[in-house]
Design a protein around this nucleic acid. Sequence first.
RNA 1: GCCGCGGUAGCUCAGUGGUAGAGCGCGUCAUUGGUAAUGACGAGGUCGAGAGUUCAAUUCUCUCUCGUGGCACCA
Length: 661
Amino acid sequence: MIQENVEKITITLPDGATREYAAGVTGLEIAESIAKSLAKASIAVKVNGEQRDLCDPITQDSQFSIIKLDSDEGLEIMRHTVTAQLLARAVKNLYPDAKLAIGPTIENGFYYDVEFKEPLSEDDLAKIEKEMRKLKETNAPINKSLNSKADTIAAFEKRGEPYKVDIVNRADQEDGFQLYTQGDSDFIDLCRGPHLPSLKHVGVFKLMKVAGAYWRGDSNNAMLTRIYGTAWRNDKELKEYLTQLKEAEKRDHRKIGAEMDLFHFQSEAQGSVFWHAKGYTIWQQLEQYIRRRITDDGYVEVKTPQLMDQKMWEASGHWGKFRENMFVVPDVVPNTDEDGPVFKEEPKEFMALKPMNCPAHVQIFKQGLKSYRDLPIRMAEMGCCHRNEAHGALHGLMRVRQMTQDDAHVFCREDQILSEVKRFIELFYAVYKDFGFTDLKVLLATRPELRAGNDETWDRAENAMAEALNTLGIEFEYAPGEGAFYGPKYEFHLRDAIGRSWQMGTCQLDFVLPERLDASYIGEDGDKHRPVMIHRAIFGTFERFIGLLIESFAGRFPLWLAPVQCVVATITGSADEYATQVYEKLRAAGIRAHLDIRNEKINYKVREHSAVGKVPVLYAIGAREAEEQTVAIRRLGSQAQSVESLDSAIEALAKECKAPY
RNA sequence: GCCGCGGUAGCUCAGUGGUAGAGCGCGUCAUUGGUAAUGACGAGGUCGAGAGUUCAAUUCUCUCUCGUGGCACCA
């Protein structure tokens, strides 16, 4: 059909070539005009940087590219179609009463939140998956229509989908709601798109697990059932992903911690760690290391009370804002009658285990008058804190109820904020580099809605914190509204073995606590001024940091941290005496050694100390070594052996065991 | 705290309405060996706790508890 006066538009392809089309041309038509095979492989297009469906008309001059399944974007679109079209429709087919909420893609997969009448268990997933396969086999084309707000709401109300109605109601737009359909089924889904042009482009998928999730992420709302799944282009990719998951599980710090005899938990102390000798060795190494670091950076170290009176926590604001996370202890003598109540009368006076160290540090600051010349004061504490975390939040070493922070508070003048924050970041990065943690996510959390302090102070604080990162060339993202009520903060995040992100270190400006607890210094002008407090931690907590270390190293600690650095294992009983000498010499050289003269074969010993114990160095001692005063050295992860003379081997090993700082 | 799943030997797990099994570990004995599991024998369990149904419960039901995957909350 030739239309003389139809408007022409210019389409610019990724290679810079331009082509002219009639306005309103679709992505599919452009693809077809380039090559039939390309059109067949296309699943969506990108117009001026925005993902669009193949069937969307293009009405103006545009940058244009085609999205195929082989790209990351293509894979994500496919996953989106799997959840929003296949999973949603399969669920509706099997459970007509189910109410659909949202179904986005996530890293490696997707989920869909659904309200079911009856609880859904993981056993039901096979059935749903089967239905999805059946639907995929239809190769149904996916079409869409644009609808007004009123029509869209009417359509979902008719279908009994209150969550979809809610989504539409909350939308700003009045028109252009996209409803997708599959072939001639009566399934519809509200979606931003784009989607695959048809189900035949769907690759392989697998439903993984079910979990609860609150509607709109709000615990006041109904809890929906979230179905998690994964989708890939082909079986090989899926298999690789599942293998990778299995491998990641092997790095789980809880599993490795038990195997390596590092720590344990038991129900009588839920959320609190029983550190075994080997685990506590790691802790001590970390503590000594960080103490050297901060001492050299001008910190002083203090130790403050575990229990303080309710009045202190009222003054600090914790009683009001943090109490549900605190362990509160009645300050009365318990009843001693064996069968009587714990307390003879209702306790009226309370104390609380500290959930944070800051109020106590302010008390130390307040002892004696401070001059502006005294500032900054960098006050550190390996502070043991208790927080009454929700049961469901506890997770191995990553989330505990008793934790020890490598905490410190810098008391400084406002004009010192920038230099102190910069100084901290530099220290922080030097430390993380020593542990090989280079892939940090940094967030700058800014003022929340409910906050103390005026806007000018917040402006200055947030700007100083952003400037510190910028001048040091550190990339970060803003977390708007996520700051503490008393000031903005940095959050430093790391990922564990299976990709969960954990906040490690932090750095928080605080204008409120010095005020509340009436801390002041005498300024140059002779008047009293409020110091600014910077709350900061590098590891965050020893517990979480060790958890991350275990997963990051898969238990294979570098020599300086390894609980046992060297095992001396005999090959034959005749070498016992010499092996004992070797062991004694290692100990004398300050090396954490273990002597294994059990009546076992060397194969067995090697396996136990390597695969299970993850000891970095093993000295195998047989008759030859005893004869020649040597050791046969085997390194963890290597089949190679080298024979060296005893003294030089120990000397070299001792050097290697030195901490990086 | 909320939703789902789970708790059986020191550990990892199988199993059954008629009071239990494997592998590893542990102990004993034999073996004295050369680099990621030597062999034989043996000991070891109120089947998370409480209540209910039943002639009989580790097994079925309920409550609690702890763990676990998420959600919410957070270092």
